[in-house]
Amino acid sequence: MSALNDKAVDNGRIARRFAALKAEGRAGLVTFITAGDPDLETCRAVLHGLPAAGADLIELGLPFSDPMADGPAIQAASLRALHAGTTARKTLDLVRGFRATDADTPIILMGYYNPIHAYGVDRFLADAIEAGVDGLIVVDLPPEEDEELCIPALKAGVNFIRLATPTTDEKRLPAVLQNTSGFVYYVSIAGITGTASADNAAVGAAVDRLKSRTDLPVAVGFGIKTPEQAANIARVADAAVVGSAIVTRLADGLDADGKARPGLAEDVLGFVRELAGGVRGARA
């Protein structure tokens, strides 16, 4: 039952990007950074440099005070961003600024529901489309709560990317895949972001299982920390997602007062280049 996905009139950046990756015969690299971390200026520099560094899709974290599915690295990033004054509105401004320089790289906002709820769902969707957002990943909205945001998003033309996890069994999978659009994000471990890493064989089997049930691309994330791990995932999935490792690299570039040291953005982008190298060389 994917009638609604077909109806979603998104601008097609996500679909075009995955089609291009398929044509190139390689997997994609999805990079996560938190909007406004460690401050809006530095974040903007990193964001704008990501495509050239090899990011194929960008996940931009919408900061939230209580990120209960995230590990320490992204929790800290969220708090840094909030302390720097980041709001949902400023997050959309960042996207708008990026879109003025890059018309093709998909941007997916990732976060929790309450900041969107507070903004107002309809107003948020309208502003997100206007800013150039292509998709949403909202951690605390399972299929049981589709009426809240998923269905309005699909109707408005914003992809709603669902997480599938090791606890998503056969019985539940159809519910999870229904109303999912853009791609499916397979969370490779039962756990929080940035902690344990999954076993490659298990990830491969899980991706195959998803692929047998959906035509959508499958991206895999959680626990991917090195170019080698990213390459391993790139061999079995359509994209590898790296978040905590990038955010940790960024945190390493802060001084004792939490301010960005000179060269921080370049260092983070250098790490993204290494990850991209791993992903791009994986199937060579």
Partner: peptide, 19 residues
């Protein structure tokens, strides 16, 4: 579905939903 009027619900990550 766990609703008291508009309140309540099940706003949890997919990993927890089966639990």
């Amino acid at each position: 579905r766990g609703h008291f009027g508009i309140y309540g619900g099940r706003f949890v990550a997919e990993t927890l939903m089966p639990l």
